[in-house]
Amino acid sequence: MSKASVFNWLFLAALMAGSWLYLADGKPFKVTGLFLASGLAIGALYALGGIGMVVLYRASGVLNFSSGAAGAAGAMTSWQLVQWGIWPPIAWLACIAVALLLTLAYGALIAPKLAWRETVVKAVATLGFALIILGFVSFIWIDDPRSLELPTDKIGVSMMGLRITLTRLIAFAAAVGISAGIWVFLDRTNIGLQMRAVANSRDLSALLGIPIRRVETIAWGISGLLAGFTGLMFANLIRLEPVVITFMVIPSVAAALAGRLNSLFLVLVGGLCMGVIENLLTLSPLLKSVRPIAPFVIAAVVLLWHQRGARLIFEGRD
C-alpha cells in the first residue's frame, strides 16, 4: 500500500471517528447507535456502487454511469415478478440477471466502438445508455408507491440495545466481503493479473497478447453483478423508484472518487465514511438539514487534497 493511500485511509477513518466523537458526545447510545447502524448500511451501498465502478474503470477505462439504471431495471423486474406471484428468490436472482445482461450488452456492443476515445467520452456515453434504460423503465412502470420486501427485513438482530435488521447487516457484510473477494481475485488469479495489466496500459497489454476483450468482458460482468445486487439493496433499503435508484450513481461516484478510482479498499472506507457522517450529521442542529451533502464534500476534499501542490500537468492519460 502506498504512502498516499495509507494517508487517505487514515484521513477517512479519522474523519469518521472525529464526527462520531463530536456529534454523538453525551447522547445515549440507544439513539446514536441507530444513526451509526443506518449510516453503515447506506454507506455500504455507496461503497458497493463505487466498487463496481472502480473494477470496471480500472480494467476498461469506462466510468459506468449506467450501473444505477441497470440496477433500477433489475429491481423493477424483480418487483413485477413478485407481483405476478413468482417465487421471490427467483425474482431476486432476476434482478441481478437483468442488470448483468444489460451491462454485458453495453460492454459487448457499444463499449468497443469507443474503446480508444478519451475516458470522459466513454463515461458520457454510458450516460446515454442510462437514459435509454431509464426511459424504458419509467415508461413500463409508471410512478406509483411500491416497495420491495425481503424476508430478512423481518429478522432483526439485537446488539447493544439496538435492533438491526438482517438486510442492513447483509448490505454491510456484502460490501466488506465483496471488496475483499475482488481484491483477492485481482491479486491472486491469472485473470486478475491480466486485468491489472490492462488497467496499467491497454496498448502494452495488447502487444503482450493479453486477451483484452475477454478481460474486459469479465470486468463488465463483475460490474453488472454488482449493479444488480446494489440495485436490489437500494430498492429495499431506500426506495423502489427508478429515477432515485438510477441517480444513486452520483453518491457512488463520490465513493469511487474517495478511492481515486483506483483503490478498492479506499472506496469501501470512503463509502462507509460518507454514509456514517451523513447520518450522524442529523445530530447537529446546524448541519442536519444539509446532511446529504456529506458525500460530495468528502469526495471533493479527497480529490483536491490528492491534487495539492500538483502543478498544471500536461495533457496525458487521465
Binding site: I110, L131, I132, G135, F136
Partner: peptide, 14 residues
C-alpha cells in the same frame, strides 16, 4: 424522450 436523448447521445458520440 429519455430514450430519444440516450440514443441521440450514443449516436453523436460514436
Amino acid at each position: 424522450a429519455y430514450v430519444i436523448f440516450g440514443v441521440g447521445l450514443l449516436h453523436a458520440l460514436i
